[in-house]
Simulated assay, not measured.
Amino acid sequence: MTSSRGRPDWATIPNLVTLARFALLAPVCVLLWDGAGTLAVVLLLVWASTDWIDGLLARALGQTSRTGAIIDPIADRLGLAAIAATLVLVDLLPWAALVIILVVDLATTVLATGAALGGRIEVSILGKVRTAVLVTSVFLLVAAAAWAPGLVGAVQVLVWTAVGLHVLSGGDYILRASRAPRVASAGEGPPSPR
């Protein structure tokens, strides 16, 4: 697929930033496994900021793409699941939180992805808030473990709030996908990429 500017759909700066998010995931998890130190906190912040940067660049440069619409949420879900799993293994996050995140992601993937890729549902405000709160709470949890261990319990409350939002957002996507028409109308485009 080629854009109106003659470049392949995937060849955009925002997609490069999203790919950097994939590349940063393994080093982030390794550093978290070794202990939530300053380097782990900084690299996690860089990883998290790529989600905001790729969307900002996509809009500012007019480089939204079908590829970005597909790989951006994959990078979010895969990254958060891997980081949450690592935090469970180092006893910063309870297993129940990881299980809930994974079950909601699996259900949403199975029941709503087709509608999203078909342009029948778009990213919701609730979904954006959910992702922001989840990423922020995970970052604050790692920062607290590294710099203020006494605050870990308080930050875990925020993490559970984010998990609750994750459940609500997943349910919202599934409900909207079930109500969406099977065939997109002629004027509808692909889902919002960022």
Rank of each mutant, 00 (worst) to 15 (best):
M1P: 11
M1C: 11
S3W: 11
S3L: 13
S4R: 12
G6F: 01
D9I: 00
W10F: 15
N15H: 08
N15S: 06
L16V: 10
V17D: 03
L19I: 02
L19A: 09
R21L: 02
A26M: 04
V28Y: 07
L32V: 09
L32W: 11
A36D: 00
A36I: 06
A36M: 08
A36S: 15
G37V: 07
A40F: 02
L43R: 02
L44C: 12
L45H: 12
W47D: 13
A48C: 14
T50L: 14
D54I: 04
D54M: 02
L56E: 09
L57P: 04
Q63I: 06
A69P: 05
A69D: 08
I70M: 12
A75G: 08
R77W: 00
L80D: 07
A81R: 00
A84P: 05
L87S: 12
V90R: 12
D91V: 10
L93R: 10
A97T: 06
L98A: 11
L102V: 14
L102G: 03
L102I: 08
V103Q: 02
A107G: 14
A107H: 00
V110G: 04
L111A: 13
L111T: 06
T113L: 06
G114I: 08
A116L: 13
G119S: 11
R120L: 01
I121D: 01
E122R: 14
V123I: 15
S124D: 10
I125P: 01
L126S: 07
K128C: 08
R130P: 14
R130K: 15
T131G: 14
A132I: 03
V138N: 07
L140G: 07
V142L: 11
A146S: 15
A146M: 10
A148L: 14
P149Y: 13
P149L: 13
G150R: 04
G153I: 09
V155W: 04
W160N: 03
T161G: 13
V163Q: 00
L165R: 06
L165A: 04
S169C: 02
D172Q: 11
Y173E: 00
I174H: 01
S178F: 05
S178W: 05
V183M: 06
S185M: 13
A186K: 08
A186P: 09
A186W: 03
E188Y: 01
G189C: 02
P190G: 11
P193L: 09
R194H: 07
